[in-house]
């Protein structure tokens, strides 16, 4: 029991850390990559919560499809230098 609790706490800490870094990292590309890492950690959390359906959907949609959309947008928005207006 205590080993699984320790794993849960570690996973929760990793979730918070990756979300924090995704929001605070200066480089937008790194931020999106960290957000994808956050999505994959979240998949583990769903597995721990006995929710394999959500884990499947999160891995395919949350980490995969959202990540692809965001990375594509980084490419499009980064084509001009930021702070130009």
């Amino acid at each position: 029991m205590s080993a699984s609790l320790a794993f849960d706490l570690l996973l929760a800490a990793a979730l918070l850390w990756s979300a924090w870094r995704a929001l605070a990292t200066p480089d937008i590309f790194r931020a999106v990559v960290l957000f994808i890492v956050f999505g994959l950690l979240l998949t583990l959390a769903w597995a721990r919560l006995a929710a394999p359906d959500i884990a499947l959907a999160e891995a395919a949609i949350g980490a995969g499809l959202t990540g692809a959309l965001l990375l594509d947008a980084v490419g499009a928005l980064g084509s001009r230098k930021d702070g130009a207006p």
Binding site: P52, D53, A55, L56, A57, A60, I61, G64, L65
Partner: peptide, 14 residues
Amino acid sequence: QPGGAFQAGAVLAA
């Protein structure tokens, strides 16, 4: 078992 239309649709989209 775990699975269904949402996950299947996501895999198709991928």
